[in-house]
């Protein structure tokens, strides 16, 4: 055994972008490994990010595997490790181990329309798969993004979203009315019902807070989507990331290793422990 799964590889932060301010801030970090290595990820996979001295956090990789220059993580400030990350500067060193998890089965989705549904920071894992589909545009049918947040200030990747609108259909929403907002007002599931994406030859990918996911799935079912067409990601407390420390399981599945991506057909048969 010449490789130790628990030792993080050191990486330098090469760019930090403030996505969202306020009391629930989100920043995107682009990182570069200090030493060359064979790290390569699939869409929807995550990595264990270390702030040495503070601990580790499982964070989804928001950059596409097609991007080779850097890894990007978009991180909501939430606890000990993410607060430390938010205090970091360009040039600081973090640890990365992974990638972990199953990722989205995008090979199986070739030739299909993809409907992405995101809420808040939930756009991060979607961003990876969305950009991969854009990069291999000819492999997929229509691409639609339905995305919302509490307010317009809470939308991540704002600049990129403007660019994205030129390429694919994007429906944005905010939870409550605000001045100057011309798009949908209401929760993401309501926007889904309102925009009525077609289930025909489509796959949906939903990421966001658990309560949003629950109602999006209901909205999609009402629109005629089959359980197998609905994909989502599950989040649980993690420590090892490799299915050993025992805390992230739902039934026999370890979310870190066997998830985080599940079709509703799989997930609905698992215990509701997430």
């Amino acid at each position: 055994m010449d490789y130790n799964v628990y030792i993080p590889k050191l990486a330098k932060i090469i760019e930090i972008k403030e996505e969202v301010g306020g009391s629930r801030p989100i920043k995107s970090f682009r990182t570069h490994f200090i030493n060359k290595n064979d790290f390569s990820h699939r869409c929807g996979q995550s990595a264990m990010i270390s702030v040495l001295g503070k601990g580790e956090s499982m964070i989804s990789i928001s950059s596409s595997p097609l991007v080779k220059d850097y890894l990007q993580f978009s991180i909501l400030k939430m606890g000990r490790v993410t607060t430390a990350l938010h205090e970091m500067q360009v040039g600081n060193v973090i640890g990365i181990r992974g990638p972990y998890g199953n990722g989205f089965p995008i090979e199986e989705w070739k030739g299909k329309n993809l409907v992405f549904i995101g809420g808040g920071i939930g756009l991060a894992p979607i961003w990876s798969v969305l950009n991969t589909a854009l990069g291999k545009r000819e492999d997929y049918g229509d691409l639609i993004l339905i995305y919302g947040a509490r307010t317009s200030k809470d939308l991540v990747f704002n600049d990129e979203l403007k660019e994205l609108k030129k390429k694919i259909t994007v429906f944005l929403s905010v939870d409550v009315e605000e001045e100057g907002w011309k798009e949908f007002v209401g929760f993401v599931p309501q926007n889904v019902t309102d925009k009525k994406p077609s289930p025909k030859n489509s796959i949906t990918v939903t990421c966001g807070p658990p309560i949003m996911i629950k109602f999006v799935i209901k909205a999609l079912k009402d629109l005629g989507f089959e359980d197998e067409q609905i994909y989502t990601t599950v989040e649980n407390k993690m420590k090892c990331g490799i299915g050993k420390c025992g805390r992230c399981n739902i039934g026999k599945h370890y979310v870190c290793k066997d998830g985080p991506v599940y079709s509703w057909a799989q997930l609905k048969n698992l215990p509701q422990e997430y």
Binding site: G53, G55, G246
Partner: peptide, 27 residues
């Protein structure tokens, strides 16, 4: 039972020095 936790134990915060340790944890 094999569940565990992983934590950083800091001996000094400036300059930073410490250990990452695994300890038993339980459900």
């Amino acid at each position: 039972c094999h569940c565990f936790d992983i934590n950083d134990e800091v001996a000094s915060s400036a300059p930073l020095k410490g250990k990452r340790v695994r300890t038993w944890d339980n459900c």
